[in-house]
Simulated scan of single mutants.
Amino acid sequence: MIRGPIPVHHQFVFPHGAFLSGEVTPVLDFDASTKDRPVQQRDKTTGEPVWSVAVTNVSPDVRAADKTVSVKIVAAVAPEMPPVPPAMASLGLPFVPVEFVDLTVTPYVNSANNRMAYSFRARGFRPLAVARTQEASRG
Rank of each mutant, 00 (worst) to 15 (best):
residue 93 L to K: 05
residue 83 P to M: 08
residue 46 T to H: 07
residue 8 V to H: 00
residue 27 V to N: 01
residue 11 Q to D: 15
residue 95 F to H: 09
residue 88 M to F: 04
residue 58 V to D: 02
residue 81 M to P: 00
residue 53 V to L: 06
residue 115 R to S: 15
residue 72 K to W: 00
residue 64 A to K: 11
residue 102 D to L: 11
residue 84 V to M: 15
residue 42 R to M: 11
residue 73 I to L: 15
residue 22 G to K: 11
residue 19 F to G: 02
residue 139 G to R: 10
residue 7 P to A: 13
residue 16 H to D: 07
residue 87 A to R: 08
residue 42 R to P: 01
residue 66 D to F: 07
residue 119 S to Q: 10
residue 96 V to P: 00
residue 131 A to Y: 00
residue 24 V to I: 08
residue 132 R to Y: 01
residue 44 K to G: 14
residue 19 F to V: 02
residue 40 Q to L: 02
residue 118 Y to S: 11
residue 64 A to W: 00
residue 27 V to W: 00
residue 67 K to T: 14
residue 25 T to H: 02
residue 100 F to Y: 01
residue 118 Y to M: 11
residue 49 P to Q: 09
residue 46 T to L: 09
residue 109 V to S: 11
residue 14 F to H: 03
residue 111 S to D: 13
residue 91 L to S: 02
residue 82 P to H: 06
residue 136 A to V: 07
residue 30 F to A: 11
residue 98 V to R: 05
residue 49 P to A: 09
residue 137 S to L: 14
residue 110 N to G: 06
residue 46 T to F: 04
residue 99 E to T: 06
residue 88 M to I: 08
residue 22 G to Y: 05
residue 35 K to L: 14
residue 127 P to G: 15
residue 2 I to K: 07
residue 29 D to K: 03
residue 114 N to Y: 08
residue 16 H to Y: 10
residue 126 R to F: 00
residue 128 L to S: 06
residue 100 F to D: 13
residue 130 V to F: 00
residue 110 N to Q: 11
residue 135 E to G: 07
residue 101 V to W: 00
residue 134 Q to E: 10
residue 52 S to K: 11
residue 47 G to H: 06
residue 58 V to S: 07
residue 113 N to K: 06
residue 48 E to C: 10
residue 73 I to S: 09
residue 116 M to A: 13
residue 110 N to T: 04
residue 92 G to I: 07
residue 91 L to Y: 02
residue 14 F to V: 09
residue 44 K to A: 15
residue 59 S to E: 02
